[in-house]
């Protein structure tokens, strides 16, 4: 489909521009490492967008979870396993609050999650300074947890790439194979009809937010393990990056359509452009132009594709 052709075009472009380094292991590791982190979040955000909602708070959940982990393990001296669970719990909790607010108030999820994003950012910054006294926390994990979440394979490839593969498999199963996924599509297609058809729309929405909170928290955990440190300012890039990946991957902004394969392709495309710019010797300051153009092109081709799909054997106007 369109997004797959886009991926090939983008890869070939940077393979030529980026030289041997980009075509070899350094290039692959660079965009796969980047892609795996944003990709894990993009999968969960993608599910939400298919269901017709947005989640801006992921960018705040990443540092919130990594600092929770670092402070619980470092400052409070708890076992790392407990600290990891605490970090993940923060994400799930934020997701639960998001879901609750979205389903109870009827305010657009964009606004609500921007609100929780700022709330979580403020809490993270305030509590970190209060407890730890600075905005960055160092943590040296024991070898086992390091191996599970933060190892570099061959000194280049983050273990999070494997975790990304796990997330892809799980989300693919949930969305495309299990009956649960049908509800997600229905929810994004028409919330009212989905409810009338007996889909527990509120519960499903809350579940989806908890999943995206969990995914963001997971990335937060793996960042601490990879870099041995947690930073308050980390993670802001994930807010738009995750949405970009999802949209480039062909998920409709209005919800109701999309696929896991598409989201993965979108993530790879985005990651290749994002990292390829550094290899190609192009002025990185202009890199955003390519990303912006890519996004517009992706949305236009998605609309075209949808129009084709709908007009198939139809005599209906509009």
């Amino acid at each position: 489909m369109g997004s797959f052709i886009g991926l090939i075009v983008v890869y070939v472009f940077f393979a030529i521009m980026g030289g041997g380094n980009f075509r070899g292991a350094p290039g692959f590791s660079s965009f796969l490492n980047f892609g795996s982190e944003v990709g894990i979040i993009a999968l969960a955000v993608g599910l939400l967008m298919i269901a017709g909602e947005l989640d801006m708070s992921v960018g705040a959940v990443v540092p919130a979870s990594s600092l929770t982990l670092a402070i619980v393990a470092g400052d409070f001296g708890a076992p790392v396993g407990v600290a990891i669970l605490a970090g993940l719990a923060v994400g799930i909790l934020v997701g639960y609050v998001n879901g609750l607010l979205v389903t109870r108030t009827g305010i657009p999820s964009l606004i609500i999650t921007i609100g929780t994003m700022f709330g979580v950012m403020g809490l993270t910054l305030g509590l970190t300074v209060l407890i730890h006294g600075s905005t960055g926390v160092f943590l040296v994990p024991d070898p086992l947890t390091k191996a599970i979440f933060g190892q570099l394979i061959g000194n280049m490839f983050q273990v999070s790439i494997l975790w990304w593969a796990v997330f892809i498999a799980v989300v693919f199963f949930l969305l495309h194979i299990s009956p649960w996924g049908n509800g997600v599509f229905a929810l994004g297609g028409d919330r009212e009809s989905a409810r009338n058809a007996g889909i527990p729309t509120n519960r499903l929405t809350i579940q989806l937010y908890m999943l995206s909170g969990f995914a963001a928290a997971f990335v937060g955990v793996s960042q601490v393990m990879t870099f041995n440190a947690a930073q308050v300012a980390a993670g802001r890039g994930f807010i738009f990056d995750s949405i970009m990946c999802v949209v480039i991957g062909g998920v409709l902004l209005t919800g109701g359509a999309g696929s896991v394969i598409g989201i993965v392709i979108g993530t790879l495309t985005f990651a290749i452009v994002n990292q390829g710019i550094f290899f190609s010797g192009l002025d990185p300051n202009f890199g955003s132009i390519i990303i912006g153009a890519l996004l517009l092109f992706a949305v236009m081709s998605n609309d075209r594709f949808r129009a084709l799909a709908l007009s198939y054997a139809s005599g209906r106007k509009n």
Partner: peptide, 9 residues
């Protein structure tokens, strides 16, 4: 009125 069906499913 609009069938309660999902256009993109």
């Amino acid at each position: 009125q609009f069938g309660g069906t999902f256009a993109l499913m």
